[in-house]
């Protein structure tokens, strides 16, 4: 079982994950239309690139934009979740070992203690994100079952992984549960709106180009996100 789900199944999962995301990127970029979007993407590549980079950069920095600054609570739980959600799966020692054993790849890793803390922060943040969904009327009105499904999908690998690493129960059970929910999440990403893992960069770049090329960038005014 363990061999299979960390071997052949993992190959399939990675293929679907990477292939699906690649398709998303190609579909998005091919669908951009200078006239319908009303952005002269190719006429001013330098202005566009500058706008895109600024638009991505400031939003990646905690409290880097006015929107982040005026909502400090949300910003804290947003980054609390995302920092762990990106760093831990990518650089956990256990994952690096697995990559080395299965695929012969040497992969960097972060200290286990840091990974534990980041995971705990991610789980707590996700719970708070859920509570925010319930408690704020302006968020409740746009929330559907789909949003809850995604919170569960995204949360399961972290909870199961954390329980396994902490040895709070039957390790074998929790590690298998962790691998399967992790693989489920990876497969889900390209096929749900979780494709924001690439989509965020695409849409931010697009709006950045819009402002950089058309809406003020060429007037020497950088959009003060």
């Amino acid at each position: 079982m363990y061999e299979f789900i960390t071997g052949p199944l993992l190959w399939v999962v990675f293929a679907a994950f990477l292939g699906g995301l690649a398709y998303r990127v190609v579909w998005y970029v091919k669908g951009l239309h200078w006239q319908l979007d009303r952005v002269a993407y190719s006429a001013f590549p330098a202005d566009g690139a500058k706008g895109a980079v600024r638009s991505i950069f400031f939003w990646l920095v905690p409290f880097g934009t006015r929107s982040w600054r005026i909502k400090p609570g949300f910003t804290a739980i947003f980054f609390g979740f995302h920092i762990g959600a990106v760093l831990v799966p990518l650089f956990l020692t256990g994952h690096a070992v697995l990559l080395h054993e299965r695929f012969g790849i040497n992969w960097p890793s972060i200290p286990q203690g840091l990974a534990d803390w980041l995971t705990a922060a991610a789980i707590v943040s996700l719970v708070l994100i859920g509570l925010r969904r319930i408690s704020l009327p302006e968020v409740r009105i746009v929330t559907s079952w789909y949003d809850w499904l995604l919170i569960v999908l995204a949360g399961l690998p972290f909870v199961t992984g954390f329980v396994a690493v902490m040895h709070w129960g039957d390790y074998q059970f929790w590690i298998i549960a962790h691998i399967l929910t992790g693989e489920l999440l990876l497969v889900s990403i390209p096929f749900t709106k979780l494709y924001h893992v690439v989509g965020f960069f695409l849409t931010r770049a697009q709006l950045g180009m819009d402002f950089g090329i058309k809406r003020g960038g060429r007037k020497g005014r950088n959009m003060p996100w």
Binding site: G31, L32, K193, Y195, L202
Partner: peptide, 12 residues
Amino acid sequence: KSRTKTWLEMCA
């Protein structure tokens, strides 16, 4: 096209 479709679908 993709820009608007993505805006509608991806809204978190």
